[in-house]
Nucleic acid binder design. Structure first.
Length: 744
RNA sequence: UGACCCGUGGUCGAAUUGGCAAGACGUCGGGUUCUGGCCCCGAAGGCUCCAGGUUCGAACCCUGGCGGGUCAACCA
């Protein structure tokens, strides 16, 4: 398949971590919980986790997050390993969170000893109530301030099995009033007197996801821990735990990407399970299921899934990928690997009236001319044939290119035939066609060079084999079944139709790994368990009779009231300062920020005393100093000098930013930094004019494009000059020189 | 009603880190064709959510708004 290698934010992060020397290796992990089968969403995670490791010569481990023994099972472990292998990835190691139960527990004791965790005996309800809501802070548990010694004793009792399920938990002591609910003393351990599928009865307390996950990453030496967006809020806990456990930089970091969502596909694990349990589908590997095993059974190849993930990308924006793309990639994958065959799914008998004698075996190519492969097979032609019922019309519409009364068409690799007679039953249904063939057109070409409207697929009635063929539509009728409250109501009862089709005899020996294109019908795959059954993996694209074109909903003219923003703060003191700034000529948005950021404003007021011009100072402080957060070694004096320098055109705005970064990092004096780094502005007209001429000579095509109307290119030319001067050219001057040369 | 995340042609998404708004799918038109597939050529489709600000220059930085998502399991 085509190689697609688009950039994405995680790749960029890894690349820069490697470039900066933060890491000299890459280690990721795929951490499924063994409580169900993997689906398309996991497939994306697998492709990204393993793909990143692959791309950067790192390692990706498989780690089973088996922290909740009530739902987990060995059966799923094996299935997951099989699915990952099938997708074509190789892990470095197989780990289990349960491997770390001992170490995790030791860390928990250490946290307790340091007063960072406590045993809570509130009931579930009490805990829920004291957690607060998203808008109200929580309240501390009455057990929060126990001594470390008591907590340690209780924790050991919990571990020793002295307490019943649900009577107590271990909690991290963070902040019950945090805006981030995840930080309101998250649970670390709960009591479960239940056997674990791997460690048996060794433990009766089990770690929670949040506690186990980040520490497992740290324990394993993971460098980049990739998960989905809904764990965004959990990252704070992740970082807290890894820090408190004593991992210093560089240490594992969590990065979140958007989940994969595909039109008409439901990926809720719980709901998928219900489909299986309730018998709404045939099992986890029903070809209509978005599970990896279901897709495999449908005939989709891992290459297609990997390509799909690569092409839909990795980003942080929620999105819904269209089915068109999905199907197009499956077709692209099949096109060069699936030999062509003929099959009739809805047979209509055709009698060749002038056919004399026996069956004739004709050559048929396995591949169309655009696929660079050569091979062929024999197909039988005889007096009785089947064509597709839909390929005949007694009363054809315009542009009909198939069979109709009196019309001649080509039977692919066979003969040209003409429909002479239509036989119907008493209800008017067509039961048989009587056609005549032209013996001179053997193989499908007319010696006289005459053209026919269309080419049909067909099979010979006597030699054709009967096979069960299953045709599919999406399981759900709506775009986003996951969003549906009553999702069972949107299941498409007609998502699968089973027919007995007539296949050309060469298909008799089809085996599970074969893929075929049944010409004009789609791509098909024999069933893995019973290769006598064929699944239609995907239909061919059809320019004819296509689905009602999704009317491109014109962009809504977002009529938004032009709200005049009020930047004036409400409290008196800030408002006074705001008025003062505005009075001095500072714009309202800038004044608003300064008036409410006491820290920044103090710096500005101090800098003003060193003679910096007030308006540029305010602008620079709010636009550049504020966003940088930590002010490091920047002093009011150096800031004032910097602003003055920029204001006097001694340096340009880009250089000012560079100087600012240096002042923050290293301190020093503005002018000295400018001198040391050669950041003084170049305003030498002669030198710049020469450079302009040079750039224009280097890009004649772009000059032409500019003169042809692409005025946006001006920025490109300016950019070129700025690059050559390391950002120190006087941009206004450059622009006017450019204008002189270009706009004449 | 709080915190956090996210808004780029119909869809998914790039944009060398502030300097030419890529590409793919889809759509439309044409070519080719023994598959109404594939392939080839061409086209349409953008106030980069909105309003301000900063800057020589903003999809990108700042402020405010609008819209979507996530979070109040002893699940992961």
């Amino acid at each position: 398949m085509a190689e697609h290698d688009s950039s994405n934010f995680i790749r960029e992060i890894i690349k820069s971590d490697l470039a900066s020397g933060k890491w000299d290796r890459v280690q990721t992990r795929f951490p499924p919980e063994p409580n169900g089968y993997l689906h398309l969403g996991h497939a994306k995670a697998i492709c990204v986790d393993f793909g990143m490791a692959e791309k950067f010569d790192g390692v990706c481990n498989l780690r089973f997050d088996d922290t909740n023994p009530v739902a987990e099972d060995e059966e799923f472990v094996r299935a997951i390993e099989e699915d990952v292998r099938w997708l074509g990835f190789a892990w470095g190691n197989v780990f289990h969170a349960s491997d770390y139960f001992g170490k995790l527990y030791a860390i928990a004791e250490s946290l307790v000893e340091r007063g960072l965790a406590y045993v809570d005996e509130q009931s579930l309800e009490e805990m829920r109530a004291s957690r607060g809501t998203v808008t109200e802070p929580g309240t501390n548990s009455p057990f929060r301030d126990r001594s470390p010694a008591e907590n340690l004793r209780l924790l050991r009792e919990m571990k020793a099995g002295k307490h019943a399920d649900g009577t107590m938990v271990l909690r991290a002591k963070i902040d019950m009033a945090s805006d981030n609910m995840m930080l309101r003393d998250p649970l670390m351990y709960r009591i479960r007197h239940i056997e674990h599928h791997r460690v048996g009865k060794d433990w009766c307390i089990y770690p929670m996801y949040d506690y186990a996950h980040g520490l497992s990453d740290a324990l394993e030496g993971v460098t980049h821990s990739i998960c989905t967006l809904e764990f965004d809020n959990n990252r704070a806990v992740y970082d807290w735990l890894v820090d408190k456990a004593g991992y210093a930089e560089p240490r594992t970091r969590q990065y979140e990407m958007a989940r994969l969502k595909l039109q008409h596909v439901m990926l809720s694990k719980r709901r998928l399970k219900k489909l299986v349990v309730d018998g709404l589908v045939d099992g986890w590997d029903d070809p209509r299921m978005p599970t990896i095993s279901g897709m495999r059974r449908l005939g989709i190849r891992p290459e297609a899934i990997r390509s799909f993930v690569e092409r839909t990308g990795v980003a942080r924006a929620d999105s819904l990928v269209s089915r068109d793309l999905w199907e197009s990639i499956i077709r692209e994958d099949f096109n060069t690997v699936a030999p062509r065959r003929m099959a009739v799914v809805d047979p209509l008998e055709v009698e060749i009236s002038n056919w004399e004698g026996d069956t004739e075996w004709l050559d048929a190519d396995d591949w169309p001319r655009d696929v660079p492969k050569e091979s062929s097979r024999k197909i039988p032609f005889s007096k009785r044939l089947y064509i597709e019922r839909g390929d005949f019309s007694a009363d054809p519409p315009k542009k009909w290119r198939r069979l109709a009364p009196g019309v001649e068409v080509r039977l692919r690799y066979g003969y040209l035939v003409t429909c002479d007679e239509v036989i119907t039953d008493e209800s008017g249904k067509v039961t048989k066609l009587v056609c005549s063939y032209d013996p001179a057109t053997r193989g499908g070409d007319a010696p006289d060079g005459r053209k026919v409207g269309g080419t049909l697929h067909w099979v010979s009635a006597d030699e054709a084999i009967d096979r069960e063929v299953r045709l599919y539509k999406p399981l759900f009728t709506v775009d986003v079944p996951d969003a549906e409250e009553d999702w069972e109501a949107v299941i498409d009862a007609a998502s699968r139709t089973i027919v007995t089709a007539k296949l050309e005899p060469s298909l008799k020996e089809a085996t599970a790994n074969d893929r075929f294109q049944f010409e004009r019908l789609g791509y098909f795959a024999p069933d893995g368990d019973d290769p006598k059954v064929f699944h239609r993996t995907v239909e061919l694209k059809s320019g004819w009779n296509k689905k009602p074109a999704a009317a491109p909903t014109r962009t809504k003219p977002v009529v938004q009231e032009a709200v005049v923003a009020d930047y004036r703060p409400t409290d008196a003191a800030s408002a006074a300062r705001f008025d003062e700034l505005v009075g001095a000529g500072v714009s309202e948005p800038i004044a608003g920020v300064l008036a409410t950021d006491a820290d920044l404003d103090a710096l500005v007021q101090e800098a003003a005393k060193h003679g910096a011009p007030p308006v540029p100072l305010a602008n620079f402080a709010v636009s550049e100093v504020g966003p940088r957060g930590d002010r490091g070694k920047l002093t009011a004096k150096s800031l004032a000098d910097l602003v003055s320098l920029a204001d006097s055109d001694a340096i340009n705005s880009g250089a000012a930013k560079k100087v600012l970064d240096i002042l923050i990092a290293n301190g020093g004096e503005a002018q000295a930094v400018v001198d040391a780094h050669g950041l003084g502005q170049i305003s030498d007209t002669g030198a710049l004019a020469a450079m302009v001429a040079e750039v224009l000579a280097q890009f004649p095509d772009r000059v032409a494009a500019y003169k042809g109307g692409r005025k946006g290119l001006k920025g490109f030319f300016v950019g070129q000059i700025m690059q050559r001067t390391r950002g120190t050219a006087n941009p206004q001057l450059v622009q006017s020189l450019l204008a002189e040369s270009l706009d004449v």
